[in-house]
Amino acid sequence: MSNAMKLLLINLLIVLGATVWIALIPEPTGAAGMAHKSIAGMRKGGDGLARLSAIFVPALLLQYGTLSAILSLILVPLWRGPQGKSAAAFIHAVSALSVVVWLAIMFTYKGTLEGDDMPYLLGFPLPSALTVYAVWGVGLLLSFLYVFGFEKYVYTKEDREGFEALLKDQARDT
């Protein structure tokens, strides 16, 4: 079992553990929102601090486990050959950046609920702006690696030659 697969399994088990932990915590009122009092078909979140406080730590764990599981899955095909180390280093750097972004989302959100004055950024309160723009941005970094590292990490010269050899062998056999 490769290191990346081990990481994936560990992170999936972290997600499972966080899920069980959350399931064991009694739900506060409006844990998943409530009907809007005056507008049919619309929902309200209500007392955000009460419902966040109940699950803050396991929610952080769930968030971390999910993010790490996704990134370790991406590592599975990349962490191979001599060039695998630099790909792994890039993914680990993206992971670290992602953890910073995710923690910033959680703590600025908690701060807003506790009454901190939050600035608006590009149309949204800061924690939401981070979710709208930075989460997408982290995904974009992975695309940069794919596009600009395609020949180095995804479909190398050796891969192309190996595939052409396979097609030749297949044509010869048939």
Binding site: I22, R43, G45, G46, G48, R51, I55, I105, P125
Partner: peptide, 13 residues
């Protein structure tokens, strides 16, 4: 406030 926060009305989990 929750509606425009990162997790909306559904909540974090």
């Amino acid at each position: 406030p929750e509606a425009i926060m990162p997790f909306g009305t559904v909540g974090a989990v």
